[in-house]
Computed example of a mutant assay.
Amino acid sequence: MMDALVDHATQTIRAGSKSFSAASRLFDPDTRRSAVLLYAWCRHCDDVIDGQVLGREQAGAANTAQERLAELEDATRRAYFGESMSDPAFAAFQAVALKHDIPQRHALEHLRGFAMDVEERRYLRIEDTLEYCYHVAGVVGVMMAIIMGARDEPTLDRASDLGIAFQLTNIARDIIEDAAIGRCYLPADWLAEFNISPQQLGDSRHRPAVAVMAKRLVDLAEPYYVSALQGLPALPPRSAWAVATAHGVYREIGVKVVERGERAWDSRTFTSGADKLRLVARGVWQVWDARRREPRPRPALFRRPR
C-alpha cells in the first residue's frame, strides 16, 4: 500500500513541479518519500479548489469551490483522527502527518490559503500578499522542515521564509497567467499607483508597469531567500543540500523574470536542465557557506504566526 502511495506521489511531483522534483532527488530515501507524499496532498488540494488536474486539465467538478474547500477541510481532520482514507492524496498525507507528528494547525493553515482564493480576497497592501504567501507556501516550508527533523522555532521560521520567497517568485512569474483566470495577488495600492485595474493586467500596454511590479516582488523575495539559508545548518546534510538546491532553482526563476523585463510573460519562465545541474553543485557550497556565517536577522515585514 505504501509503495503505491509513493509511486502516485512521485508521478504527481514529476508532472506538477519539475523544480521541486529535481531538488527532492537529493534527499535520503526516507525523507524523499515523506516529502513527495506531502507534496501530493498540497498539489491535490490546489487542484481541487481550481477544479483542475495537475494545474492543467479541467476536472469538471460540479460542486462549488466553497463546497470543495469544506470537503478538503473535513477530509484533513478525518486523516488526523486516523480514519481510513480512500483518496490516494489523503492517504499519503495521513501517512506522512502521523509519522512525523505534523501539527494539524499547520495543515489547516495551508487550507486557509486556498480559502483566500475561494473568498476572492483582495490584497490591499503588500503585507496582505505576504500573508497569502505564508498560507500557501510558507507553512508548507514549515511542514517540510518538520519532515527533515526540525522542531525548534528558529529553524521553522527560516523554513517559512523560504516558502514565502518561493511564492513571491511564483506570483511574479505568473502575473499574467493568474490575471487570465481572474486572480490578482498584487497589492491594490501598487495597482493604483499605475492606474491599472486587476482586469487590465493582461493588456499588453501595461507590460512596462507589470514588469516594474514583478521586479518589486522579486526584490522583496530576496531578504526571505537570504533568511532561509540561515536554517540550513540545522538540517541533516542531504536535506540541507536539497533545500539549498531548491532555493537556487526558484530564486533563479525570479532573476530570469527580471532579466526578461516586459517579455517575461511571452512564454513561461523556467530554469533549464543545465541551470539545475549548476545549481545542484552550487547547493553544496551554500550548505558549507551557511555553516560558517553569522546568523542574520529575519525580514521584519511579515513573520509567521506562532
Rank of each mutant, 00 (worst) to 15 (best):
97 A>I: 07
47 D>A: 10
230 Q>S: 13
266 D>R: 02
18 K>R: 15
13 I>F: 08
178 D>K: 10
158 R>T: 01
50 D>R: 01
151 R>M: 10
195 N>G: 15
200 Q>C: 05
304 R>M: 08
277 L>G: 14
145 A>D: 06
162 L>G: 08
68 R>F: 09
153 E>R: 15
251 R>A: 13
279 L>E: 01
200 Q>T: 09
281 A>R: 04
296 R>P: 02
257 V>R: 09
15 A>F: 03
164 I>L: 06
218 V>W: 02
58 Q>F: 13
190 W>E: 08
28 D>L: 11
19 S>D: 10
11 Q>V: 07
139 V>N: 02
157 D>G: 03
68 R>H: 08
304 R>Q: 08
95 A>K: 12
214 A>F: 02
1 M>Y: 10
162 L>P: 11
294 E>L: 10
281 A>G: 09
191 L>Y: 05
295 P>Q: 04
305 P>I: 02
291 R>Q: 14
78 R>V: 03
80 Y>V: 02
85 M>K: 00
248 G>Y: 03
153 E>S: 11
141 G>V: 03
289 D>V: 06
287 V>C: 05
265 W>M: 03
68 R>L: 12
250 Y>W: 01
41 W>K: 03
32 R>Q: 10
242 A>P: 09
28 D>A: 14
257 V>I: 14
181 I>C: 13
183 R>W: 02
223 P>I: 02
51 G>A: 09
237 P>T: 02
295 P>R: 08
170 N>V: 12
119 E>G: 00
31 T>V: 10
179 A>C: 09
251 R>L: 09
9 A>C: 08
213 M>G: 03
183 R>G: 03
266 D>H: 05
58 Q>Y: 13
216 R>Q: 12
157 D>F: 05
239 S>D: 13
256 K>D: 07
230 Q>I: 12
188 A>S: 13
202 G>E: 01
296 R>I: 12
64 T>Q: 10
42 C>M: 15
260 R>E: 14
12 T>F: 06
277 L>Y: 06
94 Q>W: 00
12 T>C: 15
30 D>W: 12
182 G>P: 05
304 R>E: 01
108 L>I: 15
267 S>L: 09
118 V>R: 10
220 L>E: 12
82 G>C: 11
80 Y>K: 04
290 A>K: 08
16 G>S: 15
284 V>D: 05
16 G>K: 06
156 L>H: 02
255 V>D: 08
220 L>M: 13
86 S>V: 13
274 A>K: 15
187 P>S: 14
168 L>P: 04
9 A>R: 02
174 D>F: 00
34 S>W: 12
66 Q>C: 10
136 V>Y: 05
161 D>W: 06
212 V>D: 15
